[in-house]
Structures are given as C-alpha cells and as structure tokens.
Design a protein around this nucleic acid. Structure first.
Length: 758
DNA sequence: TACCTCCACGTTTTT
DNA sequence: CGTGGAGGTA
C-alpha cells in the first residue's frame, strides 16, 4: 500500500490519522497541523479500503475550510471528490433536506433566508400581529428565535417566565408558521429541520447511519448544542466520530458555541483516545511561551502546552503610544520598514478587538498611501443590488415567497405605495394565500372586468358594490396603476426564461426587471451595475463547476444564501491585512500587530459582566498571539477617541500574564509598569506631553493650584496604579475619576485620597 | 416618493 | 466620532 502521504507526520499525528474505527477527540493546538491530520485521515481511510469516498461525512464551519479540505483530499488521492459529503453543517443539512424535502415537510424549492431576510420577515410578522417593536426589538426577537433553535427548541418548547417571554414565544410561533407558509427556512432551521427529519424518520436515519461509518468534525469546540445533537443522531452508537478541536480557541460562546461538547463527546461516544497535538509548526518559541503562559490563567481547560523545535526567535515587541493616532502612526511606520526588509504586505496582519478600531488606522494607512485590505463588512451576495436581483429570481421560482415579492414589487419604483401594499396584504391574509397569488388574482379579475364592461367606471362600480366601501375603490384604482404591470412583468419573465440556462436567466432578469435601467440612471450606479454583471459571471461559474451536480436556479439561490462570498475585489493583491481577532482565527502571518491592548477594550469591558467573559477574552488573546510566525507587536495607547469621547485606559491586564522577559519595550513609554502587581506599581515615568498639571472645574476653567490633571497617571495605596479620566469641583471639593483598570473606575475626593503621581 | 435632518447607539459573527 | 434608522417635509 502506498501511503506516502503519511510521511512527515509526527507521532501523535500519525496515531490520530491511523486510529482504528472508534470515536476520538483530537486536541489540536494552534498551528499543530489539525487540518492536515483531518484530511490525511480521510485519505488514509479511503486508501486503506476501510471506506469508499461516499462512506464518510466531514463537516466544517466555513465554506473556506470545506473547500480547503476537498482540495487537499484531491491532492492526495486520485478520486473525484464530487459526491463526497464534505461541507459545512448548513450545507450538508441543506443537501439532506433537498433530497428528502417531502419527508421534511418542505416544498421542493424551499428558499434559504440569510440574516437580513430573517430580520425582515420577523419585522413583517410583528407588524401583522401588532407587536410593539419598542418592547420587542426585532433584533432581540431574532436572537431569541435563533438561540432557541440553536438549542434544538421549537416555539412549543420555549419556556415562559413572564408576560414578556410568553409574547416572545408567540412571535416565535407566528414566525415559524409564516416561514412554513412561504416555504423559506433560516440558517438555524436548516439544522433543526434536518435533526427533526432524522429523529422522526427511522428508515432514513438507519440509511445514513449505515452509510456514514466515519464522521469527521473540524473546529469541534465551535459546535453549538443543536449541531452536537445532529452529530450524535447521525452517528448513532456504531459510527466513529473523529472530532478535532481546541478548547483554548473557543471564541464563539456568545453565539451559542459550547466547548462543553468536548466533554460530552467523550462521555456519549465512550472516547478512549484523546490525542493531543502539541507540536507547533508555525511560531517561534517566544511567541508560544507567551501564548502558553497567558492561557494558563484560564481555569477550565482540557490542558495542553505548545512547543516547537524551532528557535526562540525574537521577543514580543511592546509599543506604548500616547494616543490612538500615535499608535496608528507607529504601525504604519513599522509596516513600512518590515515591507522594506522584504516581508510581503500579505504576510502582515493588523488585529483589533472591535471593528470600530480600524478607522483610525485605515486613515493613517490611506494617508501613507499603503495598500490594505479590511476583512468583514458587506459581502457580495449581501449587497442590495444583488439581493434585489436574487429576489426577482426567487419570485420566478416560487409563488409563495412574500419576502422576495415585497423586496421588488416597488423596486424600481412602479407606483405601488404603502397603501396598495397594505391592501394587497389584507387581501392575501383574507384569502389565506401568498402575496403573489393575491396580486395575480386581483389583476386578473380587474382585467376581466375591463374586458367585460369595457370601462373603468363599470369595474369600479362592480367592486364598490361588492365591498360597499368607498375607500376600497380608491385602493383598487391605485392597485390598477402599478400592480398589473408588475404581474405582467413577472409572468413574462417567467415565460421568457423557462428554458434558458442559468446565467441567461439572470441576465434576462437584470435586463427586463428594470434594475439595469434604474442603476444606469443613478450616480452611484456604476459599481452596482458592475456587481450585477459579476452576478451573471458567478452564475456561469456555478453552472460550469464540475463539483456541482445541480445547476438549477434553486441550487444557485441556495448557494447564494449559504455562501455569501468574499467582500472585497482586492482579494488578490499584496496588501496589509486588517481584521478583528475573531476573523483571524485559522490564519497565520509572518508578522502580527495586536493593537488597542487596553483594559476595557481588550479584554472588552462588556465581556467582563458575563460568566465566562474574561476567560473567553483570554482565549481570544491566545488566538491573536498564535497567529504570528516570526514577529509579534503588542501596542496600546494611553488615550483613545471612542464614541466621540477621549478615554483614558490602563494597559491590558493581559500584559501581566505574559512573563516579562518575553516582552521588549521598543519605545520609551513606561507610563505603565506592565508587571509589578497593582499595589506596588510605581513609576519612573515620563508622561507624554499632554497639558499642564491642572484640574478643570465644571466650567472648564483650569485650576492652576492643583497638581493633578486629566490623563495623568497616579498611584493609590489601595487600588494601585490608575489614570485620571475626569475631574470636577475645585479646592476642597475637588474630586477626580480614576480608572484603576482591574480595580475599576472610581470617583475620589482629592482631599482624602492618598494619591501620588506615578 | 425622495431627500434630509435628527437622534440613539456603539464587541466579537458564519451559515 | 460615525452610522443607520426613523420621521418629517418638499
């Protein structure tokens, strides 16, 4: 047997790859080759004849990871990966639901709602039921619904504590019913519906259990309860689950991920083998030492220590900036010199805790003329022009899709205003039918009237007598203007595209829906037109992809919803990479800047109120540190403009958790001692030139007699080191607000507080 | 219907 | 400080 792909694996990797048919948990540290182990195991299982390519299921969280996996498998084995069950949780569930739509209680061409669509539908349902959106903000309702679904709970399973949760539950139930009527499913529904399908249908369950002898899971620490239940149902007692994950990199608890699934897996699947992959092939020693030291401060860990056979490398470089602007300036300069030394910009990442932090730095980069790419933000299939085009397509495919109809019925505007829309909605509700069917019927009826009587007044009088309501007549006449045109438009597009290949359908829709004309007449329309052109290209690519066996319109629409696409066109070019720490997970770079390392920002203050908050922040920091191969910069600013206000923060407490010898201060700084425990912190210190030593009175008049000033670093005998962030009063009444970092922010009377300048 | 002004809000996010 | 949503006006 030729298993050349086993060459070069280290001992635990090899053990994991060649494990016999049993469930296993692979604790794979950052940079320990987890994707390699996963894909090599698949290749090994197939090569060893244990299973055919169709006898396994491999599941990931992102499309990118799934594609990567397929690419690596193809590189190792001469097999066609098409038809293999390798994909995201949502993608695989979608596939199963399409195959068994009837058993799942779904229409054949069910549509998938993305988060935007879901929110719009929730708003619509709430409006129809007169739910107060002050008391029940739609976003909160969405969160309620999604977190229930993620826990495997239907509306009927939701608990009621009080009037509020009772109403929430009602809205959830109405939303469920409306989704069913329209034949649409949201992301969580794909999983929940698939889980229900398998648990209800024994035959089907046995079929899949018999087929997928091996189930492999990537990033297992990110699974939520429902995903875990789905895996457990699919695997049954007999099949082997091979789960790869790292509890230290669990950073999505806030959206339902539960690393506790790792413990449950061991129990539920009688896992005998927990294999730890601790050899890191990515980073130099000092970087790993810092990461290990930091993460050791977490209490609930499965336990793991990364090591490398590479050298120690450089220490971590710490830069203390006076302001966020200084920090940005430093980063720009440093990136420049790295680039001059030959490090490609693509290989340099700038990480931050929250998106708002990118703006200052983007500004500096822009002024310096440096190319950069910001991750996150609007993705291709989320753009409004694309969503509009897709909505027309959805309407061609389905009579029931109210969401799609509402999106385009008056875009481009064709004189169908709110009133006629409400009228139409009332009609649909009364007849218990969809908006499209109601619109079609309404138009057909009035057309008939016109033909029969040959006069508009006759048609109006007929309706008037039927309804006996004069306001209805007005509505009908306003319906008459735009609605028939809309109905004719959709029907003619349906007829014209019925036998066309996918890209031509889309091209036809863009041409004839009025979208093209509309954007041609708009000043900012050029980009949008270009994107619409890209949509046709995307469809052409989709249709000609040999990995794709279903190239129908419905399949393309599902693809669009499940894979929102990249967000920037500049993807290929050499540019500095800007992203949040969350989106950096799984990536690696030669050099990494972690910016904004200030208490309150990173760790974020909002997370500290949550139960596991500080630990999750620490894991986030761990992820950030382990992105770097060779060089790591940690920077923070004494003051930062946030929400239009200048904030004074102390250095992140994470600095205390990294051994001092690993850190090298690269500027004078020193306003903060990073290591002395708070009560002994003192300083030799050199403040950044900001203002005189003054306390301002309420009217903003400097009190020259005071030795204190906002922004000044001070030491308090009990609370330790802090920074003055605010002041009020003067003389004996003077009070200052001091941010002590871990000890919190406090107002102290100057007369009594024993403060010393730091 | 379109544009404008005002106000509230501000952690992380894939599918 | 910036943005996005809501509400009012031309």
């Amino acid at each position: 047997m030729n298993s050349s792909f086993l060459a070069g694996l280290n001992e635990p990797q090899l053990e994991a790859v060649t494990l016999p048919h049993q469930s296993a948990l692979i604790l794979a540290g950052a940079g320990s080759g987890k994707t390699r182990v996963l894909t090599t195991r698949i290749a090994w299982l197939i090569q060893a004849g244990q299973i055919g390519p169709s006898g396994l299921l491999a599941v990931t969280f992102t499309n990118k990871a799934a594609k990567e996996m397929l690419a690596r498998i193809s590189a190792m084995l001469p097999i066609n990966t098409r038809g293999m069950w390798v994909g995201t949780f949502h993608g695989l569930c979608n596939r199963m639901l399409r195959a068994h739509f009837r058993d799942a209680g779904l229409p054949q061409l069910f549509q998938i709602l993305d988060s935007q669509d879901q929110l719009a539908l929730i708003k619509r349902v709430m409006k129809a039921a007169n739910v107060d959106d002050e008391q029940f903000p739609p976003r909160q309702v969405a969160w309620f619904i999604n977190s229930h679904k993620d826990a495997g709970k239907r509306a009927k399973d939701a608990e009621e504590y009080d009037g509020h949760s009772r109403r929430m539950r009602e809205v959830y139930a109405m939303y469920e019913a409306q989704c069913q009527r329209e034949g649409v499913v949201d992301f969580a529904e794909l999983l929940l519906r698939c889980h229900e399908l398998l648990s209800r249908n024994e035959l089907l369950r046995d079929h899949y259990r018999g087929r997928f002898r091996h189930i492999l899971v990537d990033e297992f620490q990110d699974t939520n309860r429902l995903q875990y239940l789905w895996l457990r149902l699919l695997a049954g007692g007999e099949n082997a689950v091979f789960a790869v994950g790292d509890d230290d990199q669990s950073i999505y608890a806030f959206r339902g991920a539960s690393a506790a699934n790792m413990q449950d897996l061991q129990k539920d699947f009688a896992v005998e083998k927990v294999i730890k992959l601790e050899q890191n092939y990515r980073s130099h020693g000092h970087i790993l030492d810092a990461a290990n030291a930091l993460i050791e401060h977490n209490e609930r860990r499965l336990g793991k220590n990364l090591w490398t056979s590479e050298g120690k490398g450089e220490p971590l470089r710490v830069y203390e900036a006076g302001t966020d602007l200084d920090e940005a300036g430093f980063i720009v300069d440093e990136v420049k010199s790295l680039h001059n030394e030959g490090v490609r910009l693509n290989e340099i990442a700038l990480l931050y805790r929250s998106n708002a932090q990118s703006r200052v730095i983007e500004h500096a980069l822009f002024n310096a003329g440096m190319s950069y790419r910001v991750y996150g933000g609007l993705r291709f299939f989320e753009r409004q022009e694309i969503k509009h085009a897709l909505a027309y397509l959805r309407l061609l495919a389905s009579d029931e899709d109210d969401g799609a109809l509402l999106r385009v019925i008056n875009f481009p505007t064709r004189g169908i205003g709110n009133r006629s829309l409400e009228q139409l909605q009332g009609l649909a509700k009364a007849q218990e039918t969809s908006l499209w069917r109601a619109a079609k019927e309404k138009t057909a009826r009035s057309a008939e009237c016109k033909v029969q009587s040959g006069s508009a007044s006759a048609s109006a009088s007929e309706k008037g007598s039927a309804a006996g309501n004069s306001s209805l007549i007005t509505h009908h006449s306003s319906l008459g203007k735009g609605l028939p045109a809309f109905v004719v438009l959709i029907e003619s597009m349906r007829a014209a595209t019925a036998s066309l290949p996918l890209p031509e359908i889309i091209d036809h829709v863009i041409e004839h829906s009025g979208l093209k004309q509309h954007y041609q007449g708009e000043r900012e329309g050029a980009d949008r037109l270009e994107n619409l052109g890209e949509l046709v290209n995307a469809a052409a690519g989709f249709a000609s992809n040999d990995q794709q066996d279903d190239t129908s319109l419905a399949a393309f629409l599902a693809h669009a919803a499940l894979e929102a696409g990249d967000n920037q066109a500049q993807a290929g070019m050499d540019a500095l990479q800007l992203m949040t720490v969350h989106s950096a997970k799984g990536l690696e770079f030669h050099s990494v800047f972690i910016s904004g390392l200030e208490e309150g920002l990173f760790p974020h203050e909002n997370s500290l109120t949550e139960a596991d908050g500080k630990e999750e922040e620490r894991r986030l920091m761990y992820v950030a540190l382990t992105r770097a191969r060779r060089r790591l910069y940690l920077s923070f600013a004494q003051s930062r403009m946030l929400h239009g206000q200048t904030r004074y923060n102390v250095a992140s407490s994470f600095f205390h958790e990294i051994p001092e010898p690993l850190l090298k201060r690269i500027n004078r700084g020193g306003a903060y001692a990073l290591h002395a425990p708070p009560s002994q912190q003192s300083g030799s210190r050199q403040r950044y030139g900001r203002g005189k030593v003054e306390v301002y009175s309420e009217r903003g008049i400097p009190d020259a007699s005071s030795p204190w000033s906002v922004g000044q670093n001070v030491v308090h005998p009990k609370f330790g080191a802090g920074i003055i962030v605010n002041a009020e009063g003067r003389g004996g009444d003077a009070r200052v607000q001091i941010n002590f970092g871990r000890a919190g922010t406090k107002w102290l009377a100057l007369e009594y507080a024993k403060l010393t300048p730091a």
